[in-house]
Amino acid sequence: MALNTPQITPTKKITVRAIGEELPRGDYQRCPQCDMLFSLPEINSHQSAYCPRCQAKIRDGRDWSLTRLAAMAFTMLLLMPFAWGEPLLHIWLLGIRIDANVMQGIWQMTKQGDAITGSMVFFCVIGAPLILVTSIAYLWFGNRLGMNLRPVLLMLERLKEWVMLDIYLVGIGVASIKVQDYAHIQAGVGLFSFVALVILTTVTLSHLNVEELWERFYPQRPATRRDEKLRVCLGCHFTGYPDQRGRCPRCHIPLRLRRRHSLQKCWAALLASIVLLLPANLLPISIIYLNGGRQEDTILSGIMSLASSNIAVAGIVFIASILVPFTKVIVMFTLLLSIHFKCQQGLRTRILLLRMVTWIGRWSMLDLFVISLTMSLINRDQILAFTMGPAAFYFGAAVILTILAVEWLDSRLLWDAHESGNARFDD
């Protein structure tokens, strides 16, 4: 018995066209964080690309023209004298008006014999932002004059995390709450300039795509075929072959399989920071003279006294001054041990922890910024005066060393310790 099946006739004509040209192939790229070699397709503007294995951002879609970056830099340069030299806060102490600005706080630190601690604050609040705007201006002028731009481009990517104007702005709020127990506070004209400078700096850093600047100024022929001998440069993120001198053909720094002496430098910085954190938390970090009496505060006791007036601000200072430094030390110690013992479990967790400490590390400088600003506000000789204690130097040095330890660690070593050939990683 035959089955009668109805015929289905399409209502619209289906047209099949042959592909007349070869589909576009992607360029081969190595991930600078996990060293995976993959094919990167062509990316349009405002599109980002991520590593298929570790999800690290390979290409950032946010990109401004150099002219727009230069305009932002010149605007920031105009704001800087007002943000640093004009009063941020006014207080009335014992019937006398006192003005506080950024430069005055750094000068008070240096004047009291601790120039190293003052230079830490100076670099993060004044030096690094000033280098940022002058570097962008150098790129703008240098591109037109045919100057060598490689050193500036190499420095810009590392400079971003040292620009800490946003953290200093939080420190202004913390210092205001600490001082309000002794005097009446009012915002100064410099505060508005400083807030504007923070906003412009944040926007500029978020749109400063150094890798795209490398592509514009020093374009290189990408690798179009897969080759395990391809290496990625950690300076400019170019994937290719080393030249005859073993250097990256684009930025001219040595092109090595792994960062040289990464573990040794990381261990040295980490152990030194552990040693410095002990006096930083045991010795007094601030000293207040009130009517001839002397009151010393460690980091913890200062947080407890701050909690009596504002528990939320005390929580912020606790996280930045105690929780973050010790968390960074514990995480980095764990990561280094996992590399030495070739741990194969929990790779995803370790990668996330490394990215976390990379982002939060700079916030530990908050305590030094609060001390710097408070020193310029309260300084009335023996009637009422505020000065920093010996722990300030140890704390600042420990924070900087932990930042350097994270920067010096080559994250690809975590993958080397893991089993080879993993296309995915999980716990």
Rank of each mutant, 00 (worst) to 15 (best):
Q295M: 05
P41C: 08
A312G: 13
L283K: 12
W363G: 05
I274Y: 12
G389L: 00
C251R: 00
I58L: 06
F386N: 00
V170K: 02
W84V: 07
T9R: 09
I371Y: 01
M103W: 03
M164Y: 03
Q7A: 07
A115L: 02
S206E: 09
K160T: 06
H90D: 03
L153F: 02
I116C: 11
I303A: 06
V189H: 10
L255C: 08
P219W: 13
R144N: 08
D243N: 09
S119H: 02
I14G: 08
T9K: 12
R68G: 03
T387M: 05
K13E: 06
L404C: 13
D27Q: 09
M72H: 02
R259Q: 13
L234C: 13
Q55C: 10
L88A: 03
D426P: 02
I322N: 13
L79C: 03
A268M: 03
I185F: 05
V406A: 07
G292E: 02
I371A: 00
L368S: 06
T11R: 08
G26W: 10
T75S: 13
K13Q: 10
D27I: 06
G113A: 06
S309D: 13
A398S: 10
S48T: 08
S65P: 04
V195A: 13
D297Q: 03
V324S: 04
F82V: 04
T239N: 11
I274V: 08
P81D: 10
I91A: 01
K160A: 11
L337N: 10
F386H: 00
L414I: 07
A417L: 10
F326V: 09
P6R: 07
D227N: 14
N148L: 03
R256C: 11
T334D: 07
F141Q: 07
M147G: 04
N143P: 12
S321Q: 04
T358E: 12
R294D: 02
H46G: 05
A417G: 09
I311N: 15
P10K: 04
A272T: 13
R68C: 02
R216T: 14
L377A: 02
R424H: 10
W107A: 09
R59Y: 06
T117Y: 02
L278Q: 14
G95T: 02
G118W: 01
F217N: 11
P32C: 08
A405T: 08
W162N: 01
A223F: 14
R247I: 11
G26E: 08
G361Q: 00
V232W: 13
A187H: 08
G20T: 06
V232K: 14
I383G: 01
S65R: 05
D381M: 02
W84K: 08
S420T: 09
S48D: 15
Q220G: 07
V152F: 05
I8H: 08
K229W: 11
A269K: 02
C343K: 14
L263N: 11
L200R: 00
K229R: 13
I316R: 00
F318L: 10
T134G: 12
S321G: 01
L283H: 06
T11G: 05
V189W: 09
L404W: 07
T387N: 04
A312E: 15
T374F: 01
Y394N: 04
V121N: 10
Q112D: 07
L37T: 08
H207V: 11
L337S: 10
G171H: 02
F318M: 09
A423V: 14
A397L: 04
A49T: 02
G85A: 04
A100T: 06
G118C: 08
S206T: 14
C248Y: 00
T201E: 12
L230P: 12
A272C: 12
W267Q: 14
L79K: 00
P242S: 13
H184V: 05
F386T: 00
Q244G: 13
G302V: 06
I185V: 04
V203W: 09
V133R: 00
